[in-house]
Amino acid sequence: MIHHRLRPFATPLLAAACFALAGSAYASTTHSAFDDIEDSVATDGFNNLTAARITATQLAAGIASNSETEGGAILRRTSGGAYPASSGLYQFAGNGSTFETVVSDAVDGLTSIVFQTYINVSTGSNGIYGVLAQNNLPRLSFNGGAQFLLSSSQASENLGYTDFFTGEFVASDPNNPNHLTFTWNLASLGVTVPVDSFRITFATDNHAQSLAFQVDQLVAAPVPEPQTAALLLGGMAVITLVARRRTRQH
């Protein structure tokens, strides 16, 4: 029958077309609270920021990503007294801390950068804002410059969490927007030059509990070459033909 002859040919044809369209993009998260980022081609995650894994001295010197799919980012505390505690970074006294995440070799064709933070705060009567205070918001500089660009979009989410000190689970609270996502779309920000390196600077205040950070580098999804599009359409046509013939026989 015709469909027996077509089946071995159709599947590799369609698979080849799909592979050609997929390119190198993937989605990856480095903490359970974080989202997969579509079209990400490099992910740097910093989690388990605890005294069991790192020291305050190492944090000040700069620590590398501890995720599996990394883009070469370094997380560094540049001022203040935030230190690795039992569950993450914490600061009891002082004027807060400043940090930077540096990527010295950005991916080719970089079009967007996404920065996710997981910091337990209390924006109600306690007035603990983490990176949400205006002076603490993440800012982007690139190619060794000092542009300090605010993100082109920002999203927040209130997640339940396990308290540092009591070990008890705390339910989601609107005063605790602890999962934040900042996106820099370079085109919308008027960046017209290739970005070869970049730095994200941000700050946290006292009693904010920092559990994890993640940086994703994105490139625009490629437009299929004419021959690739034709290959995909041909593969789909073959699959459709096989399906129709099998339907008629049953």
Rank of each mutant, 00 (worst) to 15 (best):
M1D: 15
M1G: 13
I2R: 12
H3M: 02
R5W: 13
P8E: 01
A10C: 07
T11M: 14
F19D: 08
G23W: 00
G23T: 00
S24V: 07
A25N: 06
A33Q: 11
D36L: 04
T43H: 13
D44R: 03
T50F: 09
A51G: 15
R53N: 13
I54V: 14
A56E: 13
L59H: 09
A61V: 08
S65R: 07
S67C: 13
E70P: 06
G72A: 01
G72Q: 00
L75D: 05
G80F: 08
G81F: 04
A82R: 03
Y90T: 06
A93Q: 15
A93G: 11
N95A: 15
T98S: 15
F99I: 04
V103E: 04
S104A: 14
A106S: 11
T117W: 00
T117V: 12
T123R: 08
S125M: 12
G127R: 10
G130L: 04
G130S: 09
V131D: 08
N135I: 10
R139T: 14
R139F: 10
L140T: 02
S141D: 01
G144D: 06
G145C: 09
F148V: 00
S153P: 00
G160E: 04
G160N: 08
D163A: 13
F165H: 12
T166R: 03
H179T: 07
T181F: 07
F182R: 05
S188K: 10
S188D: 12
L189N: 01
S197L: 00
F198A: 02
R199L: 14
I200C: 01
T201M: 07
T201H: 02
A203Q: 12
N206T: 15
Q209F: 14
S210W: 12
L218W: 03
V223S: 14
E225Y: 09
E225I: 00
P226K: 06
Q227R: 09
Q227A: 12
M236V: 13
V238D: 09
R244I: 14
R244H: 11
R246E: 14
